[in-house]
Design a protein around this nucleic acid. Structure first.
Length: 275
DNA sequence: ACAGGATCCTGGGGGC
DNA sequence: TGCCCCCAGGATCCTG
């Protein structure tokens, strides 16, 4: 559920609460995450100061200061992950799998994740460089050129929805914002990528950016359980045009929103606006 | 090589 | 009312 706007919202919070602070202790829960936290990472982390917090696609990078700059904590929120700073006296929520004490221990960074689809891991400098240069993660949506998006669409037999979910093409778009961007662009999600014109690819690129920018302004979308910081809810779900609106009238043309299954995901669209 | 499906996981909601 | 089943989906691995 956390896609680019939700992760960006979390990163902006963490930036305020983490930069300049020092990790003093690591506490590990019983259940493993997708990547098991290694005991050797405790030694790497304790005593280190946070230099900056960055987002890359749906990934969170907490970069550490010298002596080995380019070391970092890497986190992914999966479906239900929460990464936030709070006071040590605040009771731990169920499914809190990692706790990083800060400075004198009055506050701590916690990772909570009921479904454990997410991960937090340590990256040594060489692993960090590998992450940055990995071909698995395409450019940020704002960096994508119309030409590169058009080429990615035209060289595949997949539908446009599947291409938007492909993190190698562009990083950060998930199921919700793919559907919303396709509605904004007036494109059917089941259109084959190779059939899109350059004009349509450019329209789609602009729609992705418009939808993501607006969602970031609104602190992401809260469906069921996304919160950031110490429990703030996003607001972009109030502006959904198709996601979660199956059977409701399209706000533009009054036709009923329908769903289908594409790339293994429930896909929402308006048959009137998205031919 | 590429596309699509299975897999991991738990809480919530629908249906009976 | 209670219980069971299914669904939500990001990344990764597997299969045809």
């Amino acid at each position: 559920m956390p896609e680019l706007p939700e992760v960006e919202t979390v990163v902006r919070q963490l930036r305020q609460r983490l930069i300049g602070r020092r990790f003093s202790r690591v506490h590990l829960g019983r259940q493993p995450l997708r990547v098991r936290w290694r005991r050797t990472w405790n030694r790497c982390l304790v005593g280190r100061k946070v230099a900056e917090v960055q987002r890359r696609g749906k990934w969170i990078l907490i970069k550490l200061e010298e002596p080995s700059a380019h070391d970092a904590l890497l986190a992914h929120l999966g479906m239900t992950g929460r990464l936030y700073v709070t006071g040590k006296t605040i009771p731990k929520a169920p499914h809190t799998h990692l706790v990083f004490s800060l400075d004198d221990g009055q506050e701590e960074l916690r990772y909570q994740d009921p479904r454990r689809f997410g991960l937090v891991r340590y990256l040594h400098a060489e692993e960090f460089k590998e992450f940055e240069s990995s071909q698995r993660l395409g450019p940020e949506p704002w960096e994508v050129t119309t030409a590169s998006l058009c080429a990615a669409l035209n060289r595949t037999n997949r539908c446009v929805k599947a291409v938007l979910l492909d993190q190698r093409v562009l990083a950060g778009v998930g199921n919700i914002y793919a559907d919303e961007a396709l509605f904004d662009a007036g494109l059917s999600p089941s259109r084959l990528g190779r059939e899109l014109s350059a004009e349509e690819a450019d329209r789609l690129r602009r729609s992705i950016i418009r939808v993501l920018n607006r969602a970031i302004q609104r602190h992401g979308s809260t469906i069921l359980n996304f919160v950031y910081g110490e429990g703030n809810r996003g607001n972009y779900q109030k502006e959904f045009r198709v996601y979660g609106r199956r059977g409701l009238a399209c706000l533009r043309c009054q036709e009923l929103i329908v769903t289908c299954r594409l790339a293994g995901r429930t896909t929402h669209f308006c048959p009137g606006c998205q031919q």
